[in-house]
Amino acid sequence: MKSFGESEEKASTLEQSALEYMDTLFNFAMRMTGNREDAEDLVQETYMKMHRFLHTFDEGSNLKAWLFKILRNTFINKYRKKLREPQEVHDNNDDFSLYDTIAGESEYDPYGKSSFKIEEHIEDEVKEALENLPLAFKEVVFYSDLEGLTYEEISDVIGCPIGTVKSRLYRSRKLLQKLLWEYAKKKGYLKGE
C-alpha cells in the first residue's frame, strides 16, 4: 500500500494541474450550455467530482481529456441532453466543400497568380457557425480544432470508436463549412448565386 503522505501529495499536484484547465473547461461548458450561469455550475461540479474521483485517474492518460469527460457526462446527466449525431444532416451535406463552392462562385482560377485568402471572405461568421452546430458536432470540432485532442483522446471522451470520431469530425467540418457559407452569403460578404 502506498503511504498516505505520498498519495496525498500526488493528488494535490494533480489538483493543481487540473486548476490550470479551468478556463478551457469553462469555454467548453459555455459552448454546451450557452449561458454563463449554467457553465459556471458545470465547471464547479466538474471540479468537485474530480476531487472525489481523483484516485481513479490513470496517471498515464491525459488529464485534460479526463476532465472533459467528467464535464461532458455531468452536462448530459444534468440537462438530459443526448449528444448523438442529428440524422437529417447526413443527407445532403456530406459532399459540401467550402473551398469548391467559393472557388466556383468567385470564378477562381486555380492556376492564377493570386492565392485564395480565406480571411478575406469570412470573418465573424466563424463564431456564429460554430454556435449553431448541433452539440454532437460542436463538441468534436471543439476537441479537435480548438483544444488539439488526438482522435484517440476524443474517442475516450465521447466513448465512441476512432472510426466514429473520424466520420463525425468529417461531417461536422462539412456542416460548419456549409453554415459559414450561408452566413457569409446572407451578410453579403460573398456574392452568392
Partner: peptide, 13 residues
C-alpha cells in the same frame, strides 16, 4: 486555424 483563432474565448469569472 481560423476556427481556432476566431472562435470566442470565454473566461470564468
Amino acid at each position: 486555424k481560423l476556427i481556432k483563432d476566431r472562435s470566442q474565448k470565454f473566461t470564468i469569472s
